[in-house]
Design a protein around this nucleic acid. Structure first.
Lengths: 332, 332
DNA sequence: GATCAATGTCGAAGCGCTTCGACGGTGAGT
DNA sequence: ACTCACCGTCGAAGCGCTTCGACATTGATC
């Protein structure tokens, strides 16, 4: 494997000159630069990442903590990760993958200087990782909103506003009896921040818009979804508007409604909160509030990079939700 | 940040002794070990990953190349990644995430000594990454089967056998007119190895089992799926057995059949090739050949680690497919 | 023609760790 | 009692890179 010394020799310069050509931190005359670049190309030289990290205290790697337990909103996470990786590359950084609850991994990555910065997904209200992040030298950005966000950078969709928006939309279409079908109970209990926030937004906005609303948790398995829908229709048969924030359950909710003889959108209007492609992949193209996972991922990287480079201070960015009307909602 | 020197000072030993305590490469007396461990704990010391990589030529990181373009079999990929990360941790390694077609990233990771080994997903018949991998010092394992696998380690489900198994199962149930609904045309054209292999297995086994079989590609969007199913039923109305190897299309295939008045499994038997949880998440619990993504991921890591540690030679491992009968197939 | 600033390059130090060879001390073998 | 091995520990070298200060050159300025 060629080293910087080899390149220097081949180009007839010193190692430091090669380094400066690479980093651009000092001016180099055009002919010298050309010779060095030539040598790099012919030798196929790549700087040794470890040596670079050791000397410069920069790894050019960012850490990404992702929930890898499958089943939970998988497409969202995938899109998010895609956004992070793509944008990280644009900032000339690679991505180290950590799993969500691996506190030890978080310590290792930060204290062990494996990463320059961290993007942390799926933050809970009182997240155990927050103290570790606060203690670390590296900037980090949370996706989600912990109870106490002071001093931390956060990005997310404004889920509370999304909940309100759904309520408002159903109200404007003339619905009065509505329900929200939310995440599985276990996720609710975990107080994952976005889950809480959607429910709060919806529940608080509903009465303001003259809606009679209820909120139910819902598992992802088809049989369970059917049960939840059945119970809902039995208890409040007048329900004409549904707000579904549960990717896995969504197709089964639609199936069940159809089996129960309730046409969408003629009998029941359904608003979803999910990525656009999921909304379009249903039996009926869904009126939905977009969950721009990839955008949030990119943004998270931008924010953390700004802090890394500019010493920017912490900020919280909440994206305004946008509702797109498609075929699953109609005037009452 | 505490260094090994700080630990050594605190424990009253030399730095090399601390290093040997950490690595276990030389024997250390119990009292010394205890003092060192104590010092490590109180100082919260973590070795600097870059320094370690530089001195030892080992990074304790493996690279994982994953297709991040969303939409394509997302749950499978997620489960696979989960298997890789989990098992990598058990081997005391972290995971660097690379995107599928990032050849430049592959060069960087290997030549730049960012990783000790590589796991490469979704291999195509003539994959552009293979020459790069061959040239690199690091061992690698491919998930999939390239045209020429000599000298390479590969793991995968035996997709060809899976195709045969599906044909056999439908035949044994007495079906004669069957069809396979496969991946989207674009994926087929890419010659992603597993796609080719399933189709080949099914197409070759069908006549052997006295089946009249056809194979159609199928997009993931609901409307398109309906079109494909409609065409199929129109052209060969006698079709009573279906083999679906397309996660995204699967729910829509089932919906369409139902809408067309064909009950599953009474009128049409459907065998799927997908992860178990996907099979269970359908309207009808599916008779399916399990796609053990997580297991394959673990196995990939095991193989690559064995080569790293033992200097083991390359091997190809194909997992035998297992078909589980559930509610979606029945005797004709 | 002497002075000064700017420009381009170099040498050396040092980042934090691993590892090799060396060395003193201890217990066994004779 | 003396040698020999072995065990536990240390010191030093070196991994490949960045970066700082220093040193020539060069051209502009008076």
């Amino acid at each position: 494997m060629a080293t910087i010394e080899d390149v220097a020799k081949a180009a007839g310069v010193s190692a430091s000159t090669v380094s400066y050509v690479l980093s651009g931190k000092r001016s180099i005359s055009a002919p010298t630069r050309r010779r060095v670049e030539q040598a790099i190309a012919t030798l196929g030289y790549r700087p040794h990442a470890g040596a670079r990290a050791l000397a410069s205290a920069r790894t050019e790697v960012i850490g990404l903590m992702i929930p890898l337990r499958s089943g939970i909103d998988v497409p969202v996470i995938m899109q998010f990760a895609g956004g992070v990786v793509t944008r990280a590359r644009e900032h000339a950084h690679d991505v180290l993958l950590l799993t969500q609850d691996d506190l030890e991994g978080l310590e290792r990555a930060t204290n062990g200087s494996m990463v320059d910065a961290l993007v942390v997904m799926d933050v809970e209200a009182d997240d155990a990782r927050i103290p570790i992040l606060a203690r670390s030298r590296q900037p980090s950005v949370l996706v989600g909103l912990p109870r106490d966000a002071s001093g931390l950078s956060c990005v997310d969709l404004d889920f509370e506003a999304a909940g309100r928006l759904a309520a408002q939309h159903l109200s404007e279409l003339g619905h009065r009896q509505v329900a929200m079908i939310g995440a599985p109970q276990e996720v609710v209990d975990r107080h994952t921040s976005y889950v809480d926030r959607v429910m709060r937004g919806f529940a608080q906005a509903a009465p303001v818009h003259g809606l009679d609303a209820q909120v139910v948790a819902c598992p992802g398995a088809p049989a369970e979804v059917s049960r939840v829908v059945d119970e809902l229709l039995a208890e409040t048969p007048g329900t004409s508007g549904l707000f579904v924030h549960n990717e896995r359950a969504l197709p089964h909710v639609l199936s069940r409604l159809r089996d129960a003889g309730r046409a969408v959108p003629e009998d029941v209007s359904v608003v979803a909160l999910c990525p656009e492609d999921v909304a379009l992949a249903q039996q009926v193209p869904m009126t939905a509030i977009d969950l721009p996972a990839s955008t949030i991922g990119s943004l998270a990287v931008d924010i953390v990079m700004a802090r890394l480079e500019g010493g920017q201070h912490a900020e919280t960015r909440l994206l305004t939700p946008v509702l797109t009307t498609r075929g699953s909602t109609a005037r009452r």
